[in-house]
C-alpha cells in the first residue's frame, strides 16, 4: 500500500525492514469494529455519512469500515476514494504521480465525510485531501479515521477515530497491510 509513493521518496525511499509486529489481523479487525461503533455514536447513526478512503493506503481500511458499519446499522454507507496527488504541497520537489482516479460519486454538500487513511504522520496528506474533497461540494463536517497515529504532526490536524496510537521515532517507518501493522525502518 502506498509503496510507489514511498519508494522513490527520500528520506522514506528504500526497502522496508520490519522490526516488530504491532497489530495482527485480529487486532485490526477489533480496531475497525470499535472505530465503526465510534462513528455511529458520534454521528447518531449513519444518515448523510460518506466514507472516503485515501489512495492508496486508505482504500482497504475504508472498505473494512464500510463493512463493519453495515454489520452494525444494516445500511451500506456510500464509499469513495480520493487521490491527493494534484493537491500535495511537494509537487515539483519530488516525484509524485497519481495512483488511480478519484471516485466520489456523491454530492458532498451537507454530508458528513469520514476520511480514512492507514497512517497519520505529518498531516500533509490529510491537508491535501481536505482540499481535494472541496472540489466535490461543501461537507457539513469532515472526520478523520486512521488505522495508526504515529505522531510527528507538521500541521494542526488530528484524527477523530484511531485504530492504534503508536509512538515512533521520526526515522522509523510504519507499514500497514490488510492483516498486519509493522514498525521498522527503510533501508537504502
Amino acid at each position: 500500500m502506498g509503496e510507489r509513493e514511498r519508494r522513490g521518496a527520500p528520506p522514506y525511499g528504500g526497502t522496508f525492514v520490519p522490526r516488530a509486529l504491532v497489530m495482527d489481523a485480529e487486532h485490526i479487525r477489533r480496531a475497525i469494529k470499535r472505530m465503526a461503533h465510534e462513528i455511529v455514536e458520534r454521528n447518531h447513526g449513519l444518515d448523510n455519512v460518506v466514507v472516503i478512503g485515501l489512495q492508496t493506503g486508505g482504500i482497504e481500511p475504508a472498505q473494512q469500515l464500510v463493512d463493519a458499519l453495515e454489520a452494525i446499522e444494516g445500511v451500506r454507507t456510500p464509499l469513495g476514494s480520493v487521490d491527493v496527488a494534484f493537491h500535495r504541497d511537494d509537487i515539483g520537489l519530488r516525484p509524485v504521480l497519481p495512483e488511480a482516479p478519484t471516485e466520489i460519486n456523491d454530492d458532498l454538500n451537507g454530508r458528513t465525510v469520514v476520511l480514512v487513511d492507514d497512517v497519520l504522520f505529518t498531516g500533509r496528506t490529510v491537508r491535501a485531501a481536505l482540499d481535494a474533497i472541496n472540489d466535490f461540494g461543501r461537507p457539513r463536517a469532515v472526520q478523520l479515521a486512521v488505522m495508526v497515529d504515529r505522531g510527528h504532526r507538521e500541521l494542526p490536524i488530528r484524527a477523530d477515530f484511531v485504530g492504534k496510537n503508536l509512538p515512533t521515532a521520526r526515522s522509523e517507518s510504519v507499514k500497514v497491510t490488510c492483516d498486519s501493522v509493522e514498525i521498522g525502518f527503510m533501508q537504502k
Partner: peptide
C-alpha cells in the same frame, strides 16, 4: 514535465531484490 519533480536519488524501483523484499 512540470509537476513530478526531480528523479529519485536511487533507482530503487529497478532493483529486483528490493522489490522481492518489499
Amino acid at each position: 514535465l512540470l509537476g513530478s519533480g526531480p528523479p529519485p536519488e536511487l533507482p530503487i524501483a529497478s532493483d529486483p531484490s528490493s522489490e522481492a523484499a518489499t
